[in-house]
Write a protein that binds this DNA or RNA. Structure first.
Lengths: 218, 218
DNA sequence: GTCTATAACTGGATAGAC
DNA sequence: GTCTATCCAGTTATAGAC
């Protein structure tokens, strides 16, 4: 008989290592974390990380990859649905929603690991060392589909402008994912980094307005 | 007679250490860099970093602080000038310009160190560990002045919304400062991370439109 | 100010018992 | 799969000669 999966103490050790790595890498970066710290947080032996994942670098990749495909899948679903509703060319805001809402949904889901995973993606996307390679390999194929949809929604716009607007969107999203707590301090508690509801509800129209201004739609 | 400052071999070693630390910390993060690497890049002895700056942590702070005051000064100047021109309440876009243009100007200045310093600020702002404390202590006093100006330019708006919009602005700026090279790849060379001219020229209207949409001005 | 030498420690990685 | 024991390269930091 298998123990119930809901009890964290019964979680397979392999998964516990990934959970711990996710949280620590997200917060302290690749070099700021030791395998010993990860093992301690996961409550497993140090050598076990090596047994399951090989080198530290490979554990980092495995942590990143575990949820990347899931995120890509739900996003692709959202984009396809928007395209179906929009008869092939959904309006701008629907595309941006399809890009952002899945993340919001995962954050609000039952699995709290998504919060750490999002922070990990923010860390990787902000880093020149990791970002260029890893984001390109694992996320850009899907992002290219979003860019293509944006081009269709905003014809008569130079592709260059669409790329820059996507860059600003990516920046706003990345800092939101990082949940650094800075907005909490700056606003003296008025806003919270953890308030995903407000963060995404406002981000979508904010970004949509920016696109419209730059890409010259009414 | 002082040697010409343009010759790097005559730069005082202390400054060379800061230059090297700036570049390496920005790219690899605090934990991703060793004092030996910094010393090697600066072409000085390992012990010298310790002699001048004390512990590694203090060298990191010193690197961050060297240009922070300068940046705050030019920004404050820009904000005051905008307020003078706007009779106390400059229009939205003038405030955003006063926030962003000084950075663009420093990046385009003769001192290439500003490029690395900007990436360092991006690293710190993206990090939950460093960001909350260091950004708050050294940048938030001035940022609060910008927020106050935004509140005046956008009356009848809940302060909460202004803070969130500033957060999106900060995110777009941070990813731009990081110059990760991702936009280069995604756009297949159409756009360059290093193209500050375009990056800021488009960011200002993009962000202004977002503010207007959220904060309900025409 | 500058460098040599070294102390004291921590990191990743693995071999081998169970 | 799991854990003990250990290797050794590389780290910060400093004491002391010049």
């Amino acid at each position: 008989m298998k123990p119930p999966v809901s009890d964290p103490s019964f979680t397979p050790k392999r998964e516990r290592i990934l959970d711990a790595a996710e949280e620590l890498f997200a917060r302290h970066g690749y070099d700021g974390v030791t395998l010993r710290q990860i093992a301690k947080k996961a409550d497993v032996d140090v050598a076990l990380a090596n047994y399951h994942f090989g080198k530290k670098r490979d554990l980092f990749e495995a942590t990143f990859l575990r949820r990347a495909q899931i995120l890509n899948d739900v996003r692709l679903q959202a984009l396809l649905e928007a395209e179906k509703e929009g008869d092939g060319t959904p309006p701008l805001e629907a595309i941006i929603s399809a890009f952002l809402r899945p993340i919001q949904a995962l954050k609000l889901s039952s699995d709290p690991g998504w919060r750490n995973y999002c922070a990990l993606v923010a860390y990787i996307n902000s880093s020149a060392v990791w970002g260029e390679e890893m984001m390109h390999r694992h996320f850009d194929p899907l992002v290219s589909r979003y860019i293509a949809a944006l081009k269709k929604a905003l014809p008569n716009t130079e592709p260059e402008k669409i790329h820059w607007c996507y860059h600003y969107l990516s920046g706003a999203l990345t800092l939101t994912l990082a949940q650094t707590g800075r907005i909490d301090r700056l606003s003296e508690g008025l806003c919270q980094s953890t308030d995903s509801q407000t963060a995404y509800d406002l981000m979508i129209p904010f970004v949509a307005a920016g696109f419209e201004r730059i890409c010259g739609e009414p």
